[in-house]
Design a binder for these strands. Structure first.
Lengths: 229, 229
DNA sequence: TGGAATAATTGGCTTGACCAATATTATTTT
DNA sequence: AAAATAATATTGGTCAAGCCAATTATTCCA
């Protein structure tokens, strides 16, 4: 019973219901291929309204946990692994930043060799803009993002590009933004800027190892600034 | 106006509504950062009920198109790119395998240093099972998967683990399975086995560089076997 | 002018009802 | 008795109206 009166959980009701139904499935109560109780019945069983249950079922349908057949019923699908959508918010910022360090360090090695002059210029321009933003007391969030994405994109592999992008953007989820904010001072951004400059310098020297080290150092330092403090 | 009376489209109403709202966004009518009309208003504007619109908004929220802030409104998010779900099928197998080579090579470096004996034994057992499968003329798909995932998991970073897993599983989408299949012979699997053994040997010698090279060579060779031929 | 109380707006959830697709049962027909 | 058909029940699909809770805008007072 998870009525709205209690409300100790901040998450939306449909998410709680979806989790609960997922539990029923992974617990083996409703194995793959089996049919869930009718919406009306299941809603009553969980102590929620049918529209709310329906919202949860749609979420589960989207992530492939169930299949809804009109007039027939709701059936459990094979893929019972935890949803990718729910993943992001639950993970620790530390793990996220370590993952970025590992992956982006590897990516920049690939990028170093073939990076054309045009891309180097783009990166220089981004850092110039970043410097201006900091000078004017603003947070160069967009420049930071662009710097990392331009490097990833230069490898010419869309899969790698998307992974780097999604890991970066995950840091800027509402939760993370809230958690951060107080710890971002002009000074910390000044440090970040010089780290970016070190990365660019390595790229300009076509030194893959130096670039790798600089990127790794930057992301680990960034992790410390963001998470600890 | 897409009332339920017409019903020429077989898809559920919330999907049609979600598409329609997506259109409003990509058409520039509601650019990123802007706020959508209130639920009541938008529902009336689209000629549907509020619960149905809400179902559509939840779908859009899940795929990251919008952000719903209670009491405030529904906001358009930056990510206007086609949903991640649709991504997988559109990408070239070559890019996928290259991405795996880059990432898993970096991951195994992290894994080498701290890998406990127990994990090494697990990997040995997996390769034994793989050998048996091949001998009996079967495809050691599951053993292949386990080998890579156990290594990724041993780093102790759930983000990295999930990325490696999702990239691996992407190769086994229905389309990919179809595209492959004819090119998987016992001989090719024999090659794959020996490559896995080389990786394990490097891990047992605690040699990060050798492990990195072996993993990279394996995935690139795997790419050639799978894509070309 | 600044801050606190108040009102309006907006999403969150419920109840109850009716329609449409599907599945089940009963009936008829062969 | 078996098969085709019709009637019925079950189940998802959608809508309507209302109240609650969080947020935002406004008003009013000090």
């Amino acid at each position: 019973m998870i009525g709205q009166t209690t409300m100790t959980d901040a998450r939306r009701l449909y998410q709680q219901i979806a989790d609960q139904v997922r539990q029923l499935i992974v617990n083996g109560q409703y194995p793959p291929g089996s049919r869930l109780p009718a919406e009306r019945e299941l809603a009553q069983q969980l102590g929620v309204s049918r529209p709310s249950l329906r919202e949860a079922l749609i979420a589960l349908e989207i992530d492939g946990t169930i299949e809804i057949r009109m007039g027939s019923g709701v059936y459990v699908l094979n893929a019972a692994k935890p949803s990718t959508a729910g993943r992001s918010l639950g993970e620790s910022p530390t793990e996220l930043m370590q993952a970025r360090a590992v992956i982006e360090s590897a990516v920049i090695v690939q990028a170093t060799a073939t990076m054309p002059e045009a891309t180097l210029k783009t990166l220089r321009d981004i850092l110039t803009a970043m410097r201006d933003e900091i000078t004017q007391g603003r947070k160069p969030l967009e420049q930071d993002r662009q710097f990392h994405l331009v490097i990833a994109e230069s490898v010419g592999n869309s899969v790698l590009h998307e992974i780097v992008a999604s890991l970066f953007d995950e840091r800027h989820s509402p939760m993370s933004d809230h958690m951060r904010g107080r710890f971002e001072t002009p000074e910390t951004w000044q440090f970040a800027l010089s780290e970016h400059e070190a990365i660019l310098a390595a790229l300009e020297m076509k030194d893959p190892l130096a670039a790798q080290v600089a990127m790794h150092a930057h992301l680990m330092a960034s992790s410390r600034r963001w998470v600890e403090n």
